[in-house]
């Protein structure tokens, strides 16, 4: 029953949504409205579940003094302090919540993302080699696109941004469209397998 009930729910609702999309009728619209109200009710439970799960995982780590348990203390403290400041004083301009966001989270997130520039430069120097004709084509395309994206490229020659745009509009687009078509077909096949009960890995291993 543990596997059969979720399977019945997925298959029944899956086919009902397919019917809703392809068979326009009053019953189909009523079904959709019913689902919207259910979806609104389910979301708050997911938030509570997420917070409980976070407390359980990190609480256990702290209790057992697992390696790097101190980081778990910081995580839980950050969660509590941010949530309390939001509930107590609101989230508008001038509140502690927005101060925390602008002065702690924003710089920390930006710092993490900006590290990419250092790694890209280092990787470009150490690993981007013209070892084969394909790698050479990639290298030349990268040069043109990089120069085409910045004002200095256009200042050198108007052909640089135009060629960069052509690379994005033609070869890049062709490759992306091919990939997208493949992904779309794959998604359709997987969805059909789920609807027909052939694909069951989402139910877990129990």
């Amino acid at each position: 029953m543990k596997r059969q009930i979720p399977l019945i729910i997925v298959i029944t609702l899956g086919f009902l949504f397919v019917a809703h999309t392809f068979i326009p009728s009053k019953a189909s619209v009523d079904f959709y409205d019913w689902w919207v109200s259910w979806a609104k009710a389910i979301s708050p439970f997911a938030v509570v579940l997420g917070i409980l799960s976070l407390f359980m995982v990190h609480g256990t780590k702290i209790q057992r003094k697992a390696p790097n348990w101190q980081y778990s203390v910081v995580t839980l403290l950050a969660l509590v302090v941010t949530a309390v400041s939001g509930f107590a004083w609101g989230t508008n301009e001038g509140t502690p919540f927005l101060w925390l966001f602008q002065n702690v989270q924003m710089p920390m997130s930006a710092t993490m993302f900006s590290l990419l520039a250092f790694y890209i430069a280092s990787a470009a120097y150490k690993a981007f080699r013209a070892k084969s004709p394909q790698a050479t084509v990639l290298l030349i395309a990268a040069f043109i696109v990089m120069m085409g994206q910045v004002p200095i490229g256009a200042a050198i020659s108007k052909w640089i941004p135009e060629t960069a745009q052509w690379i994005l509009n033609v070869p890049n687009l062709a490759a992306k469209r091919g990939i997208a078509t493949g992904v779309g077909l794959g998604m359709t096949a997987t969805s059909l397998k789920i609807l027909l009960g052939i694909e069951r890995t989402y139910l877990g291993s129990d």
């Binding site: 890209i120 430069a121 690993a127 290298l139 040069f143 120069m147 910045v150």
Partner: peptide, 18 residues
């Protein structure tokens, strides 16, 4: 401006590396 200089720097790095 910073992106212009950074792109040129990466291109120089790639050329030197090669």
């Amino acid at each position: 401006n910073a992106q212009s200089i950074a792109h040129i720097m990466i291109i120089v790095f790639i050329i030197l590396g090669n």
